[in-house]
C-alpha cells in the first residue's frame, strides 16, 4: 500500500484506500445507517442496541463454531437492530414479518 501517493493533495482519503471496503453489500450500509440514524434522534437508545449486539455476536459465534459457516458481522448487527426495535416496542414483530413476506413476494424486477 502506497499511502504517500494516495494522500497527496488530499485530506479526504476514503477509508478503503487505507484498508478495505467498508461495506461488502448495500444492505450492510443500510443496516449501519439505520441504527445510527435511530440513535441520533433517540428513537433508539444506543446502549440498548449495543447490549443486544453483544448478545447477538456472542450467540452467533457459538453457533458458527459448530457449523463452520462464515462470520458476517452485519448479520449480527441486523438481528440486534431487529430485536432492539421489537423489544423497545417501536415496531411490532408481526409487522416486520408481514412486510418481509410481502416484499419477498414481489414480482421480479420490483425488488428495488
Amino acid at each position: 500500500m502506497n499511502s504517500v501517493s494516495s494522500l497527496e493533495g488530499s485530506n479526504v482519503e476514503p477509508p478503503r484506500q487505507n484498508g478495505e471496503l467498508v461495506f461488502r453489500e448495500p444492505w450492510e450500509a443500510r443496516a449501519f445507517g439505520l441504527a445510527v440514524a435511530l440513535a441520533e434522534t433517540e428513537a433508539l437508545s444506543w446502549d440498548f442496541f449495543r447490549k443486544n449486539l453483544i448478545v447477538e455476536v456472542a450467540a452467533r459465534e457459538r453457533s458458527l463454531k459448530d457449523s463452520g459457516e462464515a462470520w458476517s458481522y452485519y448479520e449480527s448487527w441486523l438481528v440486534a437492530l431487529e430485536s432492539s426495535v421489537i423489544d423497545g416496542a417501536i415496531v411490532k414483530k408481526s409487522s416486520i414479518v408481514d412486510r418481509c413476506v410481502s416484499y419477498a413476494a414481489r414480482p421480479h424486477g420490483h425488488d428495488h
Binding site: E75, L78, C100, A104
Partner: peptide, 11 residues
C-alpha cells in the same frame, strides 16, 4: 423473506 436485504428494507 429472511434474506438480510429484504429484512432491512422492510425495517
Amino acid at each position: 423473506a429472511r434474506s438480510p436485504k429484504i429484512r432491512i428494507e422492510a425495517l
